[in-house]
Design a protein around this nucleic acid. Structure first.
Lengths: 211, 211
DNA sequence: CTTTGTGAAAATGTTCACAGCC
DNA sequence: GGCTGTGAACATTTTCACAAAG
């Protein structure tokens, strides 16, 4: 059975919500509660969960902690990833220090940049390397995820170095669509911040609420 | 006719792509070309555009510059927004300096924080104010969009100050779902970076490519 | 001959409604 | 009474296929 992409997105939302609820020492949660906290319908929550199994008890709801663990296992079975950031600019800096990544099991190990002034510097415990050494360093440090936080015009260079590397997945903060011509299927998640602004602008002027 | 949200998202992508193509002095573009650059189908491009009008010429394609202008008008008819950022941490800093926002007509005018050490400082031309002064300052400076870049635990406080304010739209970098209890419909765009990592992790381990 | 714009068909995603269980 | 899990109904979105236009 093929899981809809929207379901995966929502499962990640539920997980977040469960973690928050767990901290408040609430043992049980219903699909209704979960739905209210994530702005979807209760049926949707149950349908989404049904793609992966039966996690609840009729008449009772879901055990907050158990469900959180199951969802974490579904979304991140590996539990720990080494991650690099390409582009040690302001955004790269901010992402390196982003506390939630480590909490979720994504460790920013190294950064890459082409600016000789930056190469060799450290951001926290993460060192900045020359982007020319991308493949050897990512392979040596067993880095499987790359976050692209460079200016848009670096597109072609980024595509080349990633294609040649063993990177397994990409988060792309560049507005450009990356084309990685590899036999392996490399998933790419685009996070285009200007796009979000445009969408918001559209929703405001058209009087819509939907995100 | 109701425009699907996915269509709005893609229109923003097409706009980006058109701007890139325009810089390369390419006068005409077909739905096929646009589709290849944005990883959708040509029919999808045409259907999406059809929600807003007829922009092409049969047998010829679309005038790159004209189409870009039309799409910009659709997505951002106002052309200029004053934007504030709540939370002057690393992410707030990076977003303030994010060059693409200004290019797209979104001007980060002020920031807000609760840390007395930060209040009064400047990031570029943007000054950091006490978050307690949110309403008077946003009203005085005619700020209509707020970017929330605070830690998750500020949720309730943020909800309160925005509810009381005249803010018209929100970009939320917090993993929490914000509930603004206002009669006006305030669109909220969530950008949950950990969620993106989880989704990527899922796609890598399940061998999917779809973003 | 190329490419748009668009009804119709197919596929996908969401909500309804309720049986079954606590 | 309260809540999950799920087939069936419904709604939406995407793809197909082609007429019309340059």
């Amino acid at each position: 059975m093929d899981v809809p992409f929207a379901t995966v997105e929502r499962i990640a939302k539920y997980l977040r919500c469960l973690k928050r609820i767990k901290n408040k020492k609430i043992k049980l949660v219903s699909s209704q509660t979960l739905a209210e906290h994530t702005k979807v319908t209760a049926e949707q929550v149950r349908k989404d969960l049904a793609y992966f199994g039966k996690f609840g008890r009729t008449g009772t709801g879901y055990d907050t902690e158990k469900l959180a663990k199951k969802l974490e296992k579904i979304l991140n079975p590996k539990l720990n990833w080494n991650v690099c950031i390409i582009g040690a600019g302001a955004l790269g800096h901010a992402l390196t220090n982003y506390p939630d990544f480590k909490k979720a099991g994504f460790n920013i190990t190294v950064l890459f940049d082409s600016d000789p002034k930056k190469i060799g510097n450290k951001i926290g415990t993460a060192k900045i390397y020359d982007v020319k050494k991308f493949s050897p360093i990512t392979e040596k440090k067993k880095i499987e995820i790359a976050i692209v936080a460079t200016p848009e015009n670096a597109k072609e260079e980024i595509e080349q170095i990633i294609t040649k590397s063993k990177i397994k997945g990409i988060i792309n903060f560049t507005p450009a669509t990356l084309n990685i011509k590899s036999k392996r299927k490399i998933p790419i998640i685009d996070v285009d911040l200007s796009q979000k602004m445009y969408i918001l602008s559209f929703l405001i002027t058209k009087g819509k609420r939907r995100q």
